[in-house]
């Protein structure tokens, strides 16, 4: 357990000392949302109607941006080889990375989402539903992303391949995510989203660990 905690502490320290990475993701998230009114025109009704989808797309894109940070630095400086021989199982290493990935790349987006809600003329009730749906759904995005990053980590300049691998896997998350924001049948969609998240988070560490340990260096 202390090894797992050490892994968490290390990842959080690295993220905190990484400087502006978190801020960059948050700004990207807000900017994606902010350019929508320019693209579709200042029709408040239309904006309010497409807002749930836009929020999820912005969150999805912002989380893809952070994927390359998940395993690549450790791969490049040789840490990943050593982590394969650690006493701590590789799946636990991935689980720790998954938790911190969510904390540094999804939680800040959720905190920043009120700004986006304002820009997209969202009403208060929809805003609360959006907050819950992001909280429930982003772990699934992080988990799928971790698997994609693990599969592509050994590929040189594979940074752009992971998002392409991950995007199709994330479609159900987007469907149920936006479904749980819209007014009708939101609770059923939210339950599906929660099921997706739980399943993805439970399986991803093993899948990603398998991908890493079966790759050559």
């Amino acid at each position: 357990m202390s090894a797992f905690r050490a892994m968490l502490v290390r990842e959080l320290r690295l993220a905190r000392r990484g400087g502006g990475d978190v801020l960059t993701l948050v700004l990207f998230f807000i900017i994606v949302g902010a350019i929508v009114p320019f693209a579709v025109g200042p029709d408040r009704e239309l904006l309010a109607r497409i807002a749930p989808g836009m929020v999820w797309i912005a969150a999805f894109l912002a989380m893809l941006l952070g994927l390359d940070r998940l395993f690549r630095p450790d791969h490049e400086d040789g840490s990943l080889i050593l982590l394969r021989q650690a006493d701590l199982p590789l799946s636990a290493v991935v689980a720790a990375k998954l938790i911190t990935h969510w904390l540094v790349s999804a939680l800040p987006l959720i905190v920043a989402s009120p700004f986006l809600a304002m820009l997209l003329a969202m009403d208060v009730e929809t805003f609360w539903r959006m907050l819950i749906s992001l909280l429930v759904g982003t772990p699934a995005l992080a988990a799928f992303g971790a698997v994609g990053a693990a599969v592509t980590v050994a590929i040189r300049r594979g940074g752009l391949i992971a998002p392409i691998l991950v995007a199709p896997l994330s479609i159900p998350v987007l469907i149920f995510g936006t479904g749980s924001i819209s007014a009708t049948q939101s609770s059923a969609a939210l339950l599906f989203l929660a099921a997706l998240s739980l399943m993805a988070v439970a399986l991803a560490p093993f899948a990603a660990a398998l991908a890493i340990s079966s790759g050559e260096d």
Binding site: R10, D77, L82
Partner: peptide, 12 residues
């Protein structure tokens, strides 16, 4: 295993 790369994190 002690390889070419030192697995040292510059920010720690």
């Amino acid at each position: 295993y002690c390889g070419h790369r030192n697995a040292v994190k510059p920010r720690l």
